[in-house]
Nucleic acid binder design. Structure first.
Length: 113
DNA sequence: TTTATGGCTGTCA
DNA sequence: ATGACAGCCATAA
């Protein structure tokens, strides 16, 4: 294991984010929880921020618990995220909000439980 | 090493 | 519904 511990952490987060289907969104907390990092939603955000430009990780499918695109430090990226989501068919509310009940990613079929 | 901040979340007023 | 506080921990200076 010549790697660093953070590699596994990031890999785990990336794996979860990668599992988000197109046209769907997940919250940081949800991703964190699925990655085994319960209550560490921030780390997910940092892991996303650390992603390279040409990443294959659909970071734009990750939004906050309010179903909105979090205002990032870099201006322009927020609109980019929204554009990418709209491009996938995700609709935004008049308050720039996403209907999580409709576009929210559900890794488990809750209807059966 | 310490300090400060951050692509968050949940609870309380 | 909105606004303020605290908690979790990685990354940067």
């Amino acid at each position: 294991m010549a790697g660093k511990q953070s590699d596994g952490l990031h890999a785990r987060i990336h794996a979860v984010v990668r599992r988000i289907p197109r046209g769907r969104v997940a919250s940081y907390g949800q991703v964190a929880r699925l990655a085994g990092l319960a209550s560490q939603a921030r780390l997910v955000g940092y892991a996303m921020a650390a992603l390279p430009d040409g990443t294959s990780v659909p970071w734009h499918r990750v939004v906050n618990a309010q179903g909105r695109v979090s205002p990032r430090a870099t201006p322009g990226y927020d609109s980019l995220q929204r554009a990418l989501l709209e491009r996938e068919g995700v609709r935004f509310d008049a308050s720039d909000r996403i209907d999580l009940a409709r576009h929210g990613w559900q890794p488990r079929t809750r209807t059966q439980r």
